[in-house]
Computed example of a mutant assay.
Amino acid sequence: MASELDHDCPNCGEERTFYRTAATNLHLGLKTKWACPECSFGFIRINGDISSASA
């Protein structure tokens, strides 16, 4: 799995490169935590499909 992800950051207002801060396997799939190095905004993805970024 990649340790970098290009994603829109709502705090910075532009696309940033997020870095993986943690990953663990759950019964739903792989849970991955991502963080913006500029402002520390973070979000969680589960199996790449379920995301807390839009919540």
Rank of each mutant, 00 (worst) to 15 (best):
L28A: 14
P10Q: 07
L30Q: 14
P37K: 09
T21K: 14
A23T: 08
R16Q: 15
F41P: 01
E38G: 00
F41D: 03
L28N: 03
N11P: 01
F43W: 08
T24I: 10
H27L: 10
S40I: 02
E14F: 12
E14R: 14
G42A: 10
A22W: 10
K31R: 14
P10I: 09
F18I: 09
C39V: 05
C9R: 04
S40R: 11
L30T: 11
T32W: 00
P37R: 05
A23V: 03
C39S: 06
G29Y: 07
Y19D: 06
P10T: 08
R20K: 15
W34T: 04
A35V: 09
C36G: 03
G29M: 06
I44C: 00
T17K: 13
N25T: 12
F41Y: 15
A22C: 02
F43Y: 15
C36M: 03
L28K: 10
L26Q: 11
L30H: 06
Y19N: 11
C9V: 03
C12P: 05
K31L: 13
A35G: 01
K33P: 00
H27A: 13
P37G: 06
D8F: 15
K33N: 12
R20E: 13
R20P: 00
T32Q: 12
T24F: 07
A22V: 00
F43R: 04
A35S: 14
G42I: 00
P37D: 08
Y19H: 15
W34F: 09
G29V: 05
C12G: 01
S40Y: 08
L30R: 15
H27F: 08
F41K: 01
W34R: 06
K31E: 11
N25F: 10
N11T: 11
H27E: 13
K33I: 04
R45I: 00
E15T: 15
E38M: 02
N11M: 12
A22Q: 09
R20A: 13
C39Q: 06
L26T: 15
G13Y: 07
G13H: 01
D8L: 12
C36N: 07
E14W: 09
N11F: 12
C12H: 04
A22K: 14
F41T: 00
R45C: 06
T17E: 13
G29D: 04
F43A: 00
R16C: 11
S40N: 11
A23W: 11
F43I: 03
K33V: 10
